[in-house]
Amino acid sequence: MEAIKEKLIVSVSPHVRTEESVSRIMWTVNLALLPATVMAIYFFGIRALYVLSLSVMSAVFFEWAFEKFTKRPVTISDGSAFLTGLLLGMNLPSGVPFYLPVIGSFVAIVITKHLFGGLGYNIFNPALIGRAFLLLTWPRIMTTWLEPSGFTVDAKTTATPLMILKEEGIGRLLELFGDKANLYIHLFTGQRAGSLGETSVIAILIGGLFLLWRGYITWHIPLSFLGTSAVIAWVFGGKGVLFTGDPLIHLMSGGMMIGAFFMATDYVTSPMVRKAQIIFGIGCGFLTMLIRLKGGYPEGVMFAILIMNCFAPLLDRAFKTRVFGARKGQKK
């Protein structure tokens, strides 16, 4: 019996824990991005594969290097650096030179994530800061889009549907795609110019609904984000006349879908309290549409989410959960 005493472990309850873990969550989200990854490669060919693997590999490398350099435990197996790299790649045009994904990953992993304290402590979504840095530094490269021409060697450059909508109006967009039904089909499947992983609505929906079904995300942020955007697009998106906009075009183009399901829902940079998440989503939708309709850029998802990231802790404070037994409005 004495020998046992040496071995007994004493710690605070609870003595059982869930099977869930950070790495399981991260790898599940990576898995949920698989359909979008496959579609990216299908539409943008070998270039997509090249850009995506480069950004994933450099993100993982920078995490490893930073942690080695600062003598911290190496956490590359938890899948979070992989996810950041994958999301960054998904948000790049297919024709970017090799140094863009590498520099973007550096900004995302080293500056946005680790210099703020590593996983859990970053204020901003790392992949989006990476992309924002690239967009502001190389604005031309970052807005040069190639046609979704699969594995053909010389893809032509073209404009994204949102650029056309902003510069030339809905008429030109319909002219290019034939009719509205055809436009919707192209947007839904993803056969259009745009960032690698953002174009295929159906692929993103499959991944997003999978995460919803498994409980890794909840409806609060995506629904309030998309709903707000849809309402604003409908009310203010028309030509001079209120209530004539086309919400579907707005929902299915740009980074709206991947933003609502995969970027705005990032645990670390979004609120935890459900009510706060709804406000967060509404803010994302509002800012996105403000930029799209009134701003200088055709697309606003990235900036909208980054701006709302700043408010996440504040929203959690403002919408603190109600303590059991406390009456409504009762503050202690």
Binding site: I9, S11, V12, H15, V16, R17, E20, V22, I25, G117, G118, L119, G120, Y121, Y267, V268, S270, P271, M272, V273, R274, D316, K320, T321, R322, V323, F324, A326
Partner: peptide, 25 residues
């Protein structure tokens, strides 16, 4: 036995907020 000394940083997933029967954070 779960060795809790290996715990990781909070990733703000909010699971505990949803699960707390007392409505705490």
């Amino acid at each position: 036995v779960i060795h809790t000394e290996d715990f990781k940083p909070c990733i703000r997933c909010g699971r505990c907020v949803d699960a707390c029967p007392m409505g705490l954070m």
